[in-house]
Design a protein around this nucleic acid. Sequence first.
DNA 1: ATTATTTTTGCAACTATGTTGCATTAGCAA
DNA 2: TTGCTAATGCAACATAGTTGCAAAAATAAT
Lengths: 126, 126
Amino acid sequence: MKNVRKTVAKTKILEFIQNSKAAVAHSDIQASLKGVCDRVTIYRVLERLLKEGLIHKIVDVDGVVKYAACHTCENKFHQHNHIHFSCEKCKKVTCLDTIMPVFNLPQNYILNSVNFTVSGFCPKCK
Amino acid sequence: MKNVRKTVAKTKILEFIQNSKAAVAHSDIQASLKGVCDRVTIYRVLERLLKEGLIHKIVDVDGVVKYAACHTCENKFHQHNHIHFSCEKCKKVTCLDTIMPVFNLPQNYILNSVNFTVSGFCPKCK
DNA sequence: ATTATTTTTGCAACTATGTTGCATTAGCAA
DNA sequence: TTGCTAATGCAACATAGTTGCAAAAATAAT
Ligand SMILES: [Mn+2]
Ligand SMILES: [Mn+2]
Ligand SMILES: [Zn+2]
Ligand SMILES: [Zn+2]
């Protein structure tokens, strides 16, 4: 059952994600942590942080994978049914933590998780 | 203003997409069209079909890009605000053309397009 | 039908993103 | 301090997508 360990890479990466207002991509992390660790390590740390429920993963509308800290779901139900907003101008992806769309699936579909991203212009870019 | 041309590749690719019940990936197309054209051509044809509004693009929860024919929006408003269902078992992505989630953005955000994908188990796999 | 024009294609080369195996390093508990 | 094993670095690989350019094919003009 694999004990988790606290390492420099993990600490710095988590800090960076938590201090970012918008979701960050692997390349953002790599740029900010210049030389702290290998790019493969970043991938592996991200995997761990996901599994430990400290961050969540967002696939942007253009396929770019980004990560954001978990706020609303600290220790409780780890559900991310909020909307993500992707700005077409500044390319920033932000969690709209309080906004959860309403919909109902047809019979016979079993829902597990959702991935809602809307795009347009953010308040700063409109 | 670039006239569009009808070519074998384009015809076959569009047919394949239109005949598929689920959304298809580039690799699916390549597999089905074995040797009809180069893989680069597939990318370029897909781009054109998108621009011509004959298909739409879906980024799956795991980042895999897929394409589906347009049904509800033939000539009219080209809006894709319906939900896509991604089955975790059979990996098929299907358009739930009639289901459109309700939500409201905070002031100052300008909505342009949406990308809603929910995952779980489809009727066949549940 | 022939020719001319321009879109489309194939190919090769390249970039970006993510993965895997394996030897080495470093956390942490005993 | 020692021992165990999680975590890392590095190299190599895999996959998806892009770009430039010459050749081929589709359509328009003659
Ligand atoms: Mn979020
Ligand atoms: Mn669809
Ligand atoms: Zn913006
Ligand atoms: Zn299924």
